[in-house]
Amino acid sequence: MQAVDWLYLLLPYQFSPVIAGTAVVVLTVYFRGARAAAERQLQVGFGRHLAFFAGVALCYLVLHTRFDYYAQYMFFMHRLQHLVLHHIGAFLIALSAPWSVLALGLPVGIRERLLRPLVRNRLVRGLYRALQHPAVAPTLFVGLIFFWLIPEVHFDAMLNLKLYHLMNASMLIDGILFWWLMLNPSVQHASVRIGYGLRILIMVLITVPQVVLGAYIALSRQELFEIYAICGRAWPISPEVDQQLGGILTWIPAAMMSVLGVLLVLRMLLRAEQTRSEAPNPSADIA
């Protein structure tokens, strides 16, 4: 492949100033924050930096390159796009716990006059607490997958560019919120308290509706999403194969991300147990 071909693949299918702008701002702020953290000798491991960049890069690739073209005209590519936004990319970003680095990277004026009051705002805190409620967060996580796959809703989202962007943004934002709730290394954060055991339960429970939905799509004899036939597919592929692949992508890798999450939380749980048994004071209970 020649350089020109690669460039073509990396250029956005439809240029979006919002996506391009967000990527530039987020990366700039993160770079500044990482430098400031190093100057203050705050420990941010290489692994966390790597997770953050991998997460952001993956999300950018599926949203703002030629990939987006295929995601608009192939059902299974669309499912792959959402798998990256809602599960893999969001998972990596949450795993990197980038908030302190990002806050450090903001210009002082913005941090003091915008971020601080915002974080302290009662309304914002209340909304955050509601979204991160142990019953609301998983419902929202699974609910969004179902919602955008209602054939009628899916139809409109694939026809209207604004709805399409709204759909993708909602998947990414909700994904980060959910995985942050699951993977947050501290059990108590911003007044949201959720123990390791409950997290494991939630991650196991959310696999059930995802498996059912994925299997339903993959095994359905009916063409569920006619929009791809109406709009034309990116290359000749039978509608059945497209739908089966899409169903499998909704079914298996999505459930595997839960398994990965459970393993990570189990490790946190073991470490917490260790510190507890080593601690001389039993009142330092963190679970």
Binding site: Y73, I230, G232, A234
Partner: peptide
């Protein structure tokens, strides 16, 4: 025009006679 109306088209591999399938929207 096709991207304006959120539709696309694509070409299949040509056969021995040079005939190929074209995918396009059906609406």
């Amino acid at each position: 025009l096709t991207s304006r109306y959120r539709t696309t088209y694509g070409y299949g591999e040509p056969d021995a006679k040079g005939n190929y399938v074209v995918t396009h929207g059906s609406a």
